[in-house]
Amino acid sequence: MTRTSEYNFAYLDEQTKRMIRRAILKGLAIPGYQVPFASREMPMPYGWGTGGVQVSAAVLTPDDRFKVIDQGADDTTNAVSIRSFFEHTAGVATTTATAEATVIQTRHRIPELPLREGQVLVYQVPIPEPLRFLEPRESETRKMHSLEEYGLMHVKLYEDISRHGHIATSYAYPVKVEGRYVMDPSPIPKFDNPKLGDCPAVQLFGAGREQRIYALPPYTQVVSLDFEDHPFEASKADHPCGLCGSDSSYLDEVIIDDAGGRMFVCSDTDYCDARQAQGHRGKDAA
């Protein structure tokens, strides 16, 4: 199955990996700061995780065990194809078990199982600039970061409250890192925001189209922005998982018939499977 002899290890040439590693190290040295890097063309379209793939390629070693999740699931097209890409190009072992993985590439979720030291979580990032939607000029947003002018971030939250009565931003919820840089955590649900901070694993963020890498070293302080009278809340659907019965995991709503029937299930498939294997059952379990 392995085709490492036909590719350089993990697809990218060594010089490119060196360049990306340097960007990663710089990102780790300045948590939350967006480091520009020379993003390469990858054999998949932008939006399919080219940034994350390049970061994974730069950090993978032959001994690693690789896991990919897309919206928490190991079995979606995106996850399957990226997993198979590195099976082919790096010959690394893969897994769907969070506990066993050493490198986890993710789109839109942080696994439910707490991460541990030694693990690397690689995020696929579509738009790394949290200020982008309010300030279109890149020159200006970079200056705002360098001068810590972050009032605009709160304007966004203000607009939310004025329109919806509460902070309606439910994913890509902006955070402040170590009291310095405001960072877009990628489109993870805000339910996952508390897991960003004080995390034992290394967290790396790659934006391929936008050519930016940023990072959170282990045990970094990450605070979700809010107002005194509208504090941050890590919300989720108010149901237990229909399959495993968990009442503390992030849920997807699934429509199950044409009559409007629906069920709520864990978005993290590995977590849900593991609980079911331990004998936990939800109300919709077969």
Binding site: E149, G151, V155, Y158, D226, F227, E228, D229
Partner: peptide, 14 residues
């Protein structure tokens, strides 16, 4: 109108 207030640290929506 609120932007300048938030820019200088106002964090109370009300």
């Amino acid at each position: 109108v609120g932007e300048r207030l938030m820019a200088v640290g106002a964090r109370h929506y009300g």
